[in-house]
Simulated scan of single mutants.
Amino acid sequence: MQSEKYVIMDGMDSSHTAPRDPDLLLDFDEVSLIRGGTTLVGPVNWQVELDERWVIIGPNGAGKTSLLRMAAAEEFPSQGRLWVLGERIGKTDMRDLRASIGMSSAALANRIPPSENVGDLVISAGYAILGRWREEYDELDRERATDILEQVGAYHLVDRTWGTLSEGERKRVLVARALMTDPELLLFDEPGAGMDLGGREDLVAYMGDLAMDPDAPAMVVITHHVEEIPLGFTHAMLLDEGSVVAQGLIEDVLTSENLTKAFHQPIEITQLDGRYFARRARRAGSHRR
């Protein structure tokens, strides 16, 4: 298992030691993640600037979560060079980076004890821990957690325990926890998964408001469904089998041609009031007898 201080030996030259562009929060340079001889993702070249909102879409096994884990400073790349928040991965303490990144994922949700109080769960993000032990939180922490829970429509859950929450309620609480640290970068791994239609639409609407806030941090969201893309998102990446099918401005990437290539079946995409909708294209000549 690699340690937190592991250094990637890649023959780095002086051109890669120059100060990074402060507007560049993620910088993937020919990055790959390989496990057991299998390439999970890569090689990827990808940059995220501070005012951008990215959505990453692709079928199961495309490498979306692996890519996001590297962006979250939770995985070391096997090959290539990666900078997160201006720091070179493999040359810096990963724990310091994680404190500046807000993350919401199923992996995090699975680590939360059922008895954990929702208010404490949100507050503890500011201390880079999961679960309260003997920490004493001050009033400012509690006020901030209360404000954020109210913003995401989860204030009424503040005194509940994690084990009593529905899937939709858990998603809202995880979003609040991700926002608690006032992060420079927000990462969401399938935030709408498991939610009913009403809950999903509420969450998409809130994330759209957040995306259109000029003071909000950069955002990267993974989803399987274009219907879950909030308003205000500027860029998109399509992944398939670990490789990038297309990336760039969202209107250039989310096309029927690109989605058909990524999902290996004829897909038609339409847009209504700024939201995207996709379906399998009807085969020519098909009809109901």
Rank of each mutant, 00 (worst) to 15 (best):
P217E: 02
A211G: 03
M237F: 00
V245T: 11
P217H: 01
P214G: 11
D240M: 02
V245C: 11
E227C: 01
D215H: 06
P214F: 09
R200M: 00
A205V: 13
M212T: 13
L239E: 02
R200V: 00
A216I: 04
V204R: 15
P230G: 07
L203A: 10
Q247D: 13
G242C: 14
V226A: 03
T223S: 15
P217L: 02
V244S: 13
E227V: 02
L210N: 05
L238G: 06
L249T: 02
L203W: 07
S243T: 09
V245Y: 08
L249D: 06
D213E: 14
G232N: 05
A246F: 04
E241F: 07
D213W: 08
F233A: 07
F233H: 06
M219L: 12
V244P: 12
D202V: 15
V220H: 04
A205P: 08
S243L: 09
L231K: 01
S243M: 10
D215Y: 03
G208R: 11
D213V: 12
E201N: 08
V221H: 15
P214N: 08
I250Y: 10
L231I: 02
L238W: 01
P230H: 06
D215C: 07
P214D: 09
M207C: 13
T234M: 10
A205L: 14
M212N: 10
P214R: 05
P230K: 05
D215G: 07
L210Q: 04
A218M: 01
M237G: 02
G232C: 11
M212I: 04
A236W: 02
E227D: 04
D202L: 15
A246D: 09
H235A: 04
M207E: 13
V244Y: 13
E241M: 05
L231G: 06
M237I: 02
L238D: 05
E201I: 03
A211M: 01
E251N: 12
P230F: 08
